[in-house]
Amino acid sequence: MLLDAATLSRIAGLKLRARAVVEGVLSGQHKSPHQGQSVEFAEHKEYAPGDELRHLDWKAFGKFDKYYVKRFEHETNLRAVMVVDTSGSMGFGTTGLSKLDVARVMAATLSHLLVRQQDAAGVALVAAGRFAEVPPRSAATHLQVVLGALETATAQGPTDLASAADTLAEKLPRRSLVCVFSDFFDEKQDALKRVLALRSRKHDVALFHLLDPAELLFPFEDPTLFVSMEDARQVEVNPREIRESYLEEFGRFLANTKDACRAADCDYELVRTDEPIDQALLRFLARRGGRL
């Protein structure tokens, strides 16, 4: 079961709001780039030729003896795509849950939240040479389709987030919320850059960086043969001898990822697989709720 009743109950009072302006086909609670089609008053604007006369504020004319036009904000529904990295490295886990397990639960929970608030949720399972997509829909029955797709996801093959980002850029014609669940262990140097490039296409991008405590702390002691989970590489090392260097390298990787997200104005959430899933979601939802 991807949906955990306890987790759902904890986030029940929250709503996922788009942090950026998104486009939808339905009216909803998120800002739309189109104005004038809503009943939500936004501001006054001095009349200029060409403005709709029906929006003239006569009361303001009476007070200031000038013509002002009322402007309204349009609210629309949200389209969100849960991009789940299904490369081999996502299958790693030392706490009983693999990173993919955590990603699936988080994606499913967010999808449930979106559908419940009348927004459209879809999912894309990506890895090198694979791109399985369930397009965003807001129908309640669509949630089962999303969950079904997540259920079938398995971790295998190399990571290729760059190609996935390119494909998404093509397939998402309108402004959408893109939630990426990945460890971002991608050999391609520009993979993260291309994921974040979605932001430049006016998409709202949120990165969930999923990491196992063993990757963060490198707690190995005895000489160990480390085997790659995405290809045939392997290396024998004495962990105690390289721990310091590893932690230094990994720390730099985390800092770079976080800095890149901040620079691209994207949300970044580091998720440890040994922490309760709802905590990471609550942090994310609260932050977004606080900004809106």
Partner: peptide
């Protein structure tokens, strides 16, 4: 000891 490891 052989350990599959993601952050290889």
């Amino acid at each position: 000891r052989q350990v599959p490891f993601a952050a290889l």
